[in-house]
Design a protein around this nucleic acid. Sequence first.
DNA 1: TCTAAATAAGATATGAATTATCTTATATTA
DNA 2: TAATATAAGATAATTCATATCTTATTTAGA
Lengths: 148, 148
Amino acid sequence: MNISRASDYAIRGLVYMAKQPAGTVCFVKDIAKNTNSPASFMSKIFQTLAKSAIVNSFTGTKGGFTFNIQPENITIKQVIEIIDGPILLNRCAVNKSACNEIGNCDVHYMWVDIRKILIKALNSYSIADFAKDKKNSKEVLSQSMQYS
Amino acid sequence: MNISRASDYAIRGLVYMAKQPAGTVCFVKDIAKNTNSPASFMSKIFQTLAKSAIVNSFTGTKGGFTFNIQPENITIKQVIEIIDGPILLNRCAVNKSACNEIGNCDVHYMWVDIRKILIKALNSYSIADFAKDKKNSKEVLSQSMQYS
DNA sequence: TCTAAATAAGATATGAATTATCTTATATTA
DNA sequence: TAATATAAGATAATTCATATCTTATTTAGA
């Protein structure tokens, strides 16, 4: 019921990138250093992000990563699904035939319901939301209050 | 971001128990058979449920499990936390000092927010909700619709 | 043009957690 | 008291998350 370290690192790494001037080519080395994460692991995470269309990668000296999609349009849900795979909660929430109960799964609709709520919440935040200055950061905070 | 097989089995097992007449002593063998799950695994799961105060266990012939708390008062969130451990989403959502970012974690408030939403949803369902007859099952269905 | 250096890509290894099974202890009843 | 039915506890296997190591690619300078 928790996100993986890899997803956490991915989000923090993308937020770091979004804080740089638009178009900056970022090195894994710097991304890792500024997010307190192991560079070798971050490297593999960014490989996966590059295979999806989220970021571009350039090999060789002066290579690195840039955004391929505006950080405003990258939601937390997208990042988690790229790194951790689809958010199902329970396998029966998506594929009813995967339910253990033959023909009649008691809990199917609950998982469909809760999944919808969770995905909506995860889609309500973008990477850009965390790259703003402190004034804007407080707006994020007050946005969170409306749910409490 | 998904619940474990163990939590899924636990929920289905408790729902099966809740469908029996109140006070019935249920055997793991029957619980497993009626939920399409491996009896040996279900046995270990019910050990854990018994260590928490959710169910009582009785050893020996005619032993088995009964509810120690009314199924109406056992929420899905409780079951998941007993089996899978605390629902954090991200470790920084609960313990801010566990954030990678030293002194200033960009995403902390997001995780606090989303966790609150998820836990509210998981607490809105009890084991008893799934032990009702078909007429009531449809009420659960329409309840789910209000979120869509 | 060749060599060195800096980078990402890809392959491999480690370790922890999940999932499952096997063995032991306990209680009942005939 | 012996046999049986049950849960409890110990152990094993598998999978997945996490991390590291090796290779390929590009650039720049000699």
